[in-house]
């Protein structure tokens, strides 16, 4: 389809009444991109301090029908997860992202929980993953794919549990992209370092396709449960997971 490519680009230029832009203008546009200038960003989250941003994140996530539990430290995660599974009548069985950020969770304190680490299969009912960032303005979780964070964990199981450290909460989508660029040295090495998939997740799966009535659990998870771990605060930049 090489010919189609040339025909389309020529038609675009003809309609714009000009030839190719020229090296100088192209360099300007490339510089504009590299500057990552923000457009208008709503003040809803940016006007708050970090503690209030964490509160906003939780309130917005709950408004999108996610459930949220706050836990003091990673050591408390097994008990909180066990209680959550019991309260929802779910089996005590988890598939967990094989990511090092989750290695320190002391699962042995709950020997009845059956744990597997890897990607999700069709039989997995509950998954637990880290996230890359949590975005306060709409209660959105930002997850990235990778060798230790397979995407199937986010969509196949009926229940998805996501672990968020308080210092992963940022104000806006733009802040999330900035953090990702820092983490992958985006500007230095180019776009190919970008993970295959970046998922923004806001609440559980839903549809309104029948009579505009919202039903949760259309094809993705029916439940989205967020654990906010309060051990790390903004400023202690740690490994983000993923």
């Amino acid at each position: 389809m090489n010919r189609s490519r040339e025909v389309i680009l020529a038609a675009v230029r003809r309609s714009l009444n000009r030839g190719p832009l020229g090296a100088e203008r192209e360099a300007e546009l490339r510089d504009q991109i590299a500057a990552h200038r923000r457009n208008l960003v709503p003040a809803r989250a940016t006007s708050l301090d970090h503690l209030a941003q964490v509160e906003l994140f939780i309130a917005m996530a709950e408004a999108a029908q996610a459930t949220v539990a706050r836990v003091p430290a990673l050591a408390d995660v097994p008990e909180t997860v066990t209680r959550y599974l019991a309260s929802e009548n779910l089996p005590a069985e988890l598939v967990i992202a094989p990511d090092s950020s989750l290695d320190d969770i002391p699962w042995t304190t709950r020997p009845l929980l059956r744990i597997r680490r890897g990607r999700a299969g069709k039989a997995d009912a509950v998954s637990l993953t880290p996230c890359f960032a949590a975005i306060a303005e709409t209660g959105t979780l930002m997850l990235v794919s990778g060798a230790h964070t397979p995407t199937t964990l986010n969509f196949l199981p009926d229940t998805h549990i996501i672990l968020v450290h308080a210092d992963q909460v940022v104000a806006t989508y733009e802040d999330g992209w900035d953090r990702l660029r820092e983490a992958i040295h985006w500007n230095a090495t180019g776009a190919s370092e970008l993970p295959r998939t970046v998922n923004f997740i806001t609440g559980p799966s839903r549809t309104g396709d029948i009579e505009q009535r919202i039903v949760l659990g259309a094809h993705g998870p029916r439940r989205l449960h967020i654990l906010v771990v309060e051990d790390r605060r903004a400023g202690d930049h740690g490994e983000n997971g993923g």
Binding site: A64, F200, G220
Partner: peptide, 10 residues
């Protein structure tokens, strides 16, 4: 406020 899923694939 935001759709449940926004996915960027590369």
């Amino acid at each position: 406020e935001f759709s449940s899923y926004m996915t960027a694939s590369t």
